[in-house]
Simulated assay, not measured.
Amino acid sequence: MRRQAVGLMGLLLLLAACGGTAGSQGAGPASPSASGSTRGPTAVPSPTGVNIDGCVTEETGKVFEYTRDGNTTLGVIMGKGSAGVVVSYERRGKVCDWLPLADRLVDAGHRVLLFKRNNMVEPEEDTVAMAERLRKEGVTKVFLVGGSMGGRLSALAAGALTFPVAGVVSVSGVVQPEDVAGLKAPFLQVGGDQDGLAPLDMVQAAHDAAVKSADRRLVTLPSRDHASQLFTGDQGSKVLDTVMAFIKKYRD
């Protein structure tokens, strides 16, 4: 019994020396401050006021409300210019994931509309409504860009709009051949050659079906990344450059 008590006391002393207590995990090292003292990591404050997913505020652009079928959500229009891009994100994505592309587009003189999907009942209607909103804002050339299911929604919306779109871009899109069989607008597909969610045979079938497109292109890069993950992966710069070059060609 005495040996057990001594052993327990030694364990407690050892934990105390390491800064922990029995049954706990020690905290990471504190960061030195400018004065030489130590403190824990500084928390990033959440944005106040109207914001979308914590990454888009009224400083980012013109935030608006959008209502369909009794459901209200938010969107934002960034930048200026006569050419505009509507972005539809992937199923498990969010507006924030597409800011790398949106920022590039704004810097190049485009307007960009990012929005939170309203609901999953005919979601392409949201993309249609966003394209119509850009037209009312004075945009004369509208591009539809989307990732994964957002790529398919962009293709479906292009066929439902009453005005022709300047181009459709599908990033790792799950576009079906029938979605683009009647598409006349230029059509770009970009994806990774090892993407299990948007396999090569799927995107190739969509490419082959888009025979009426003014310019159909299929660009595959060595990557497993899917949709917006491509922007921050190893092929990020190539993907962004490819999309930007396509939009620039049909904007001018």
Rank of each mutant, 00 (worst) to 15 (best):
F187V: 00
P222F: 04
F187W: 02
S170E: 11
L221M: 07
V175P: 00
T162M: 13
S170V: 05
V171C: 13
Q189N: 10
A185M: 02
H207C: 12
A198M: 10
A227G: 07
S228Q: 09
V219I: 12
R224I: 14
G182F: 12
G173F: 08
Q204W: 09
T162P: 08
V180T: 00
A209R: 01
D208Y: 13
P186I: 00
H207A: 13
D225K: 07
R216F: 05
V169Y: 12
D193V: 07
M202H: 13
D195N: 10
G167V: 00
G192Y: 11
A185D: 01
V190K: 08
S223H: 05
G167H: 03
L200C: 14
Q176W: 13
G167W: 03
Q204D: 07
V190S: 07
A198S: 14
D225C: 06
A181D: 06
A185S: 05
G167E: 02
P177A: 03
K184P: 08
A158Q: 02
L200S: 15
G182M: 11
V174G: 13
A166W: 06
G196H: 15
F163G: 04
G173M: 07
A181G: 05
G192Q: 08
V165H: 05
F163C: 04
F187M: 00
L188C: 06
T220Q: 13
A214K: 11
A158V: 01
A198W: 13
A181Q: 08
A205P: 04
V168L: 05
Q194M: 14
M202Y: 14
K212D: 13
